[in-house]
Simulated assay, not measured.
Amino acid sequence: MQRVIEFKKKSWWSGGIDTVALNEKIAALNGDGWQVKSMVANTVAFGRVDSYSLLIELQEAKK
């Protein structure tokens, strides 16, 4: 099974994407059996990154 999720959490100091929180989210997804297949930056005016779209896939249990 695959899903697309959007990560938008901003850093309080810089106003940019909170990469520490993004890495924590990816680690939590991995712990729940999801694997990130791809990640794309979503940009706004002048190329500023506003969010990330992640394609995740649920790993089947090994038999």
Rank of each mutant, 00 (worst) to 15 (best):
S11A: 08
A28N: 09
T43K: 09
G47W: 08
K9I: 14
W34N: 02
L54R: 11
S38Y: 09
K62A: 06
N42M: 11
S53F: 12
A45C: 00
N23M: 05
S53I: 11
E24V: 04
K37E: 09
S51K: 06
R3E: 15
W12S: 04
G47H: 10
W12N: 05
F46Y: 04
M39S: 13
N30L: 07
A28Q: 09
I26V: 15
I26C: 09
R48H: 02
A27Q: 12
S38Q: 14
G33W: 06
S38D: 14
V49W: 09
N23F: 01
F46L: 08
K62E: 08
A61H: 13
E6K: 15
D50N: 11
N23C: 00
V40N: 10
K63D: 10
G33N: 05
K10M: 10
G47Y: 05
L29I: 02
W12K: 06
G16V: 05
L54G: 07
E24A: 12
I17V: 15
A28W: 00
G16S: 13
A41E: 12
A21C: 01
Q59C: 07
W12H: 00
Q35T: 08
K62V: 12
F7N: 13
K10T: 08
W13V: 13
Y52G: 08
T19R: 08
N30Y: 06
M1G: 11
V40H: 08
V4I: 15
K10I: 03
F46C: 00
F46A: 02
W12I: 09
G16C: 04
Y52I: 05
A27K: 15
E6N: 12
G15W: 11
G33R: 05
M1E: 13
R48G: 01
Q2V: 11
W34V: 02
Y52V: 04
D32M: 11
L55F: 09
K63T: 14
V49D: 06
G16M: 03
K37H: 02
A41N: 06
I17Y: 02
V40K: 11
L54V: 07
F7S: 10
K25A: 13
A61S: 14
W13F: 12
V36L: 08
Q2S: 10
L29C: 09
K62M: 02
I56A: 13
E60R: 15
D32V: 00
E57H: 07
G15E: 14
I56Y: 12
E24N: 12
G31C: 02
G33T: 08
R3I: 03
S14G: 11
E24W: 03
I26F: 10
V40W: 01
D50M: 03
E6F: 03
N30T: 13
R48K: 12
D18R: 02
I17W: 02
V49F: 05
L29K: 10
V44D: 07
Y52D: 09
V49S: 05
K8P: 00
L22F: 04
I26S: 06
T43L: 11
N42E: 14
I5D: 07
V40P: 00
A27P: 03
I17D: 04
W13D: 10
L58P: 01
V20P: 00
G15N: 11
K9E: 09
G33M: 07
E60K: 15
E6Y: 04
N30G: 03
V44N: 05
W12A: 09
A21H: 02
D50A: 13
T43P: 04
W34Q: 02
L22S: 01
L29N: 03
N23L: 06
T43W: 02
F46M: 04
Q35I: 11
V49N: 03
N23I: 00
